[in-house]
Design a protein around this nucleic acid. Structure first.
Length: 281
DNA sequence: AGCCAGGTCAGTA
DNA sequence: TACTGACATGGC
């Protein structure tokens, strides 16, 4: 189907560090994976896109997933006018949306993310899916590349430590296994959607390998709490170098998480970790 | 070769 | 509460 999506850049979303299974599969084609679902996106001119799903599937799932609301104008309007670094980052990051990803997938992915580079996280998640995920039959990939879904808590919980270690998880393997066992024994994380911030945070912190940074990432990316601002080493450096050591995030309000994502993308971009060919300078 | 990576945890004071 | 080193693996 064809659709108009303003402020939507698959390229920037792919590079914004919120999802690790999104990739470019052809010159003008991006592939998003969400648990066991797959979507191909092709930009077709300004704000126009071709999506590989049906209208029914879009209405039922992907519209929400892509966060196709009209909040990004509001988020821009709510930025403090004198916050020059934020304005600069937001200009660079225009087109980033906070996808409504699955909480369980975010929990496992961000447990794996600690002390890893983004390419290393991608590789590890991919290996985990290949190891334990459901084999998907999807058309549209070159060379019949095999594609796998994201393993459920129950499937992960039954893996051996050695199997998880084979993905390159390193010391995080035991965190993963124990977290999967806890999750498999309880209600699905998706039932936590309506919990107050503080309760949700505490429940997430109860998983092994989950500290404040991972927990807030799950809240932002998995529970779409847009006011939550994960502070990682990149944000700490920005706070130190651009805000004189005074953390601006608590004052950002409803869309702080979006601003954080702009800044993360912008910082990566400046450092040249994202190579998109069109070097503007 | 050595350092660092979207941190967390256990051990100290 | 605040600070410190260990922790597996991979990339530059």
């Amino acid at each position: 189907m064809r659709i108009t999506l303003p402020h939507f850049s698959p390229e920037k979303i792919m590079d914004s560090g919120q999802c690790f299974r999104m990739r470019k599969t052809a010159a003008n084609t991006y592939m998003i994976q969400a648990l066991d679902r797959v979507l191909f996106i092709q930009p077709k001119g300004k704000d126009r896109f071709h999506l590989s799903c049906t209208k029914a599937a879009y209405d039922a799932f992907w519209r929400d997933y892509l966060d196709a609301d009209d909040i990004y104008e509001a988020a821009a309007a709510a930025m403090p006018a004198d916050d020059l670094h934020l304005l600069e980052a937001a200009a660079a990051g225009d087109g980033i949306r906070i996808l409504r990803q699955d909480p369980w997938e975010m929990l496992i992915t961000f447990i794996l993310s600690q002390r890893k580079t983004i390419p290393a996280i991608r590789q590890c998640v991919e290996k985990l899916c290949a190891l334990a995920g459901k084999r998907l039959s999807v058309k549209g990939l070159p060379d019949d590349t095999p594609l796998y879904g994201f393993p459920s808590p129950k499937v992960l919980a039954r893996l051996s430590l050695e199997e998880i270690l084979s993905t390159g998880a390193g010391y995080r393997a035991s965190y993963l296994l124990e977290t999967a066992r806890m999750a498999a024994a309880g209600a699905p994380l998706s039932t936590w959607r309506d919990l107050p911030d503080e309760v949700l945070l505490q429940r997430l912190l109860a998983f092994p390998g989950v500290g404040i940074k991972v927990a807030t990432c799950v809240m932002l990316f998995g529970f779409h709490r847009l006011h939550i601002c994960p502070v990682d080493v990149w944000m700490e450096r920005i706070i130190r170098e651009r805000y004189g050591g005074i953390d601006p995030f608590p004052a950002y309000g409803a869309y702080g998480g979006i601003y954080q994502q702009y800044m993360f993308y912008h910082a990566q971009h400046l450092k040249g970790l994202i190579k998109n060919g069109k070097t503007g300078a």
